[in-house]
């Protein structure tokens, strides 16, 4: 077995297990911590796909900024008080799992029915070139300049909106 395959298996199993634990663990803080590990495993998978820039951004933005925001709000809202609301609604959970497995079957069927996985193979020189920050930046500031500016405006609006919403008292 190659090193890449071993790494893929390791990162993929970490991602799967932590995703499941994020959903099933009772305490929201534990969920958030499992989600951080999941984001770390995804960052490793991006590295395996030689997307270096996105791998670093995943750690900084998701595992850093977004999860800090989640944990901050969780600590602020005293999540342990909510524990009594988690009444076991067994019927609904079983139904949700059945729906999920059905959807997964559909997706897996679609993936295996198309022969795209067998026909394409990764060209390591090409994919290493496009994952680099220089290549991404070059494309971002020339061809995709307008979406880039638009996303900057979206972030500005979201910042102002978050401040306004959390400040005002709704009634």
């Amino acid at each position: 077995m190659e090193l890449a395959e071993i790494l893929f298996l390791a990162f993929a199993s970490i991602a799967v297990v932590t995703a499941i634990f994020t959903v099933i663990s009772r305490s929201p803080v534990i969920s958030a911590l499992f989600l951080v590990i999941n984001f770390g495993a995804l960052s490793g998978l991006y590295l395996l796909l030689s997307a270096q820039f996105l791998s670093v951004v995943q750690v900084i933005v998701y595992a850093g900024a977004i999860m800090v925001l989640f944990l901050f709000v969780l600590m602020l809202l005293r999540p342990e008080k909510e524990d009594k609301y988690f009444v076991v609604n067994r019927k609904m959970k079983i139904f949700a799992v059945i729906v999920g497995l059905f959807l997964f079957g559909q997706l897996a069927f679609a993936i295996f029915a198309s022969d795209i996985g067998q026909t394409v193979s990764i060209e390591s020189s090409r994919s290493e070139q496009i994952g680099k920050i220089a290549y991404i930046g070059e494309n971002l500031y020339t061809t995709y300049l307008f979406p880039f500016e638009a996303i900057a405006f979206v972030l500005l609006v979201a910042t102002i909106g978050a401040i306004v919403i959390s400040k005002k008292k709704l009634d």
């Binding site: 991602a15 799967v16 995703a19 499941i20 994020t22 959903v23 999941n38 949700a96 799992v97 729906v99 999920g100 497995l101 959807l103 997964f104 997706l107 897996a108 993936i111």
Partner: peptide, 10 residues
């Protein structure tokens, strides 16, 4: 696909 389904179930 599996991670998406786990998220959906969540």
């Amino acid at each position: 696909a599996f991670m998406f389904i786990v998220g959906t179930i969540g």
